[in-house]
Design a protein around this nucleic acid. Sequence first.
RNA 1: GGAGAGGUGGCCGAGCCCGGUUGAAGGCGCCGCACUCGAAAUGCGGUAACGGCGCAAGCUGUUCGUGGGUUCGAAUCCCACCCUCUCCGCCA
Length: 434
Amino acid sequence: MLNIDLIRKEPDTVRRSLTTRGEDTAVVDEVLKLDTRRRQLVTERDQMRGKQNEVNRRLGQQMATIRKQGGAAEPPKELREELDLISKQIESLNEESNQVEASLQRVMLTIPNIPLPDVPVGADSDGNIVASTWGQPKHFDFKPLPHWDLNEKLDILDMERGVKLSGARFFVMKGKGARLQRALINWMLDVHTAEYGYRETRLPYLVKEETLVGSGNLPKFGDNLYRDAEEDLWLIPTAEVGLTSLHRDEILEPGVLPLRYVAYTPCFRREKTSAGKDTRGIKRVHQFDKVELYSFVEPSKSEEAFQNIVKCSESLIQRLGIPYRVLRICTSDMGFQSAQTYDLEMWAPGCEEWLEVSSCSTCTDFQARRANIRYRPTLGARPEYPHTLNGSALALPRVVIAILETYQQADGSVVIPEVLRPYTGFDRIEPVKK
RNA sequence: GGAGAGGUGGCCGAGCCCGGUUGAAGGCGCCGCACUCGAAAUGCGGUAACGGCGCAAGCUGUUCGUGGGUUCGAAUCCCACCCUCUCCGCCA
């Protein structure tokens, strides 16, 4: 959520932000209108309440006196009538101001975060900028296969049975494929905790509505989520959701920040908007595994924390020895809650595609405001909103795709990258079918 | 799932039966001051979040799990819901 002060004082900044994101600017005027009305009503109502308190106090005193003298407990008529009138007025003012407040809140929750100044402006994904690339595409003496063809002989992915169990865009991993996936998760968690100081967490996969509002997924993007209507719980689309709400409605005392977390969770997405896209293989599925980094930091440490997350994610890809590129995502392509996003894409030589395996974002104080997370800079100081940052490190099974396609051999086997071998317990996946 | 107890300020805990100057006794913690060479002990004072008005000092409103109701007025009465604890049942 944006700071309403900013909308009041610099409505044009907010309008510009919306425009570069390709969104309608009418909400700004709506907010301004509602905010003005709300403040009028609140002032008026509070004055009435002040009066009510004062008269009630007087009446209370009289009652005490009467009772002390052993009199009847009937309060004086004039005062009662005056108060009756006041409370009726308060009731109507209160009702209206509550309505206005609720409308204002509703609109505020639909306004996306403001991009940082140096985020590239662009109308669609063509506006994204390749900031850097790492590694050389590997040379093959044969035509490298896409993972779905490679799998014909390896038999580690079972698309048909995934569909049998759950429908389109679900799959089953088997044997060394399943083991490779697990090895990656364990390896990534180990690196982040042991080398980079992120604290490992295990989170619920089902969360309440408020939790998704805090991270920014609701109220606008419910279409992309699975939900259990009976219990009113939602399946998480990313660990970011739970990590944001970890400190919801808290005031963090001085010295607590920075907080750095890493979580492995499955992620559930309906992929409604991607119908028909990426239907082959396991690039785009309804359920996937991901290791996520998340930081709560003081605003002055925001940039540093962002670079750290990007660095951690990159370092994993480098250790796997697979070429990748860093994309600076442009205004219109950035997520709702993000103020700045870098994507990391690994090269998959079989399907000849850059695969997005990480998306690192600064959310500034946007999520902190939504989730009401604050910190005290110093003892006794007024609470302020921290910045939150997140990044995948990394998203599976796309990393598996890149590994399979990059390290495939002429005989159809796949060599396991050195760093993973202690985790897989094998150094090669052999074809099992002729 | 069944039975009972309970949810009050940073923490503990009174108030709730019998609604009225109660943001709420008392204690702990924390901060400041005094005493002291210093510390402890002691004494005194302070101690929230959020909203509105205001340049500011300040004034003011709301908040006793949440939401509704009764009432001139609710921490206190009524209703619904959520959560915690204990016991029983069930289960990985």
